[in-house]
Amino acid sequence: MYQFNYHRPSTLDEATSLMAGAEDGVYLSGGMTLIPTLKQRLASPSDVIDLGAIPGLTGVTLNDGTVSVGGMTRHGEVAASDAIPALADLASRIGDAHVRNRGTIGGSIANSDPAADYPAAVVALGATVHTANRSIAGGDYFTGLFETALHDGEIVTSVDFCVPDAAAYEKFPNPASRYAVVGVMVARCGDCVCVGVTGAGACAFRATALEEALATDFSPGAVDGVGVDHSEFNSDIHASAEFRGHLVGVLTKRAVARIG
């Protein structure tokens, strides 16, 4: 690792002040992505600002049909929560047990890794991403490869999810890293169907053609006739864009079948 200055602020204001004063600062949440990145010297920040000592940023609470997850809530805590079983199931399949004991939802969605799991839930479960000063609709939050609507120095304080009537997350994991080659969250709420896809494109998105087909006929068979445009999908050593397009359909069918 390159040398950096480590800071451990105890308030959000202190954290943002440190970031504003840093030459090239970065926030540290759980560190499950950032620390390996630093070790590989893929990043060389001047200052690492640890959010781990700021109180009030953890916990999963259910209030009037909305589940609020604090930005520093560990994946393991979400996995053990019961308000949205599909969200807990998604969290239980991130990385391994040790990653789930350290990694946080805020860190995950601030990074916007195209293969992370949580982004599928953010776009499919009517999420709202909260920062100290504003709220961002889940559908507007991811803007590109490792890009989000967050401003420089802005910190995710919590993420709200709407409790759906039913939902299921299906994922084709990379066998080594457990990142999603493709992951699909299908959620049904009244007559509405949301299909959130991660792993396939530059960032998470909703597959609207699949949603329209499933809104008419909520059955695995309804997916068959819908073509998934893979022209902009990721292609790498793990999967071609065409294969990822195929997986979107397969995983959507599996999720619909699980919901029943």
Binding site: Y6, R8, G31, I35, P36, K39, G52, H98, V99, N101
Partner: peptide, 29 residues
């Protein structure tokens, strides 16, 4: 491995198993 994969460095921190190669010393204060 020193890359958070192998788990040879696992210790318990505040009651949870964690990979100590992927925790900064400052985080353990």
């Amino acid at each position: 491995c020193d890359t958070s994969q192998c788990g040879a460095c696992v210790v318990h921190m505040n009651g949870d198993a964690v990979k100590s190669c992927t925790v900064l010393a400052g985080q353990a204060d």
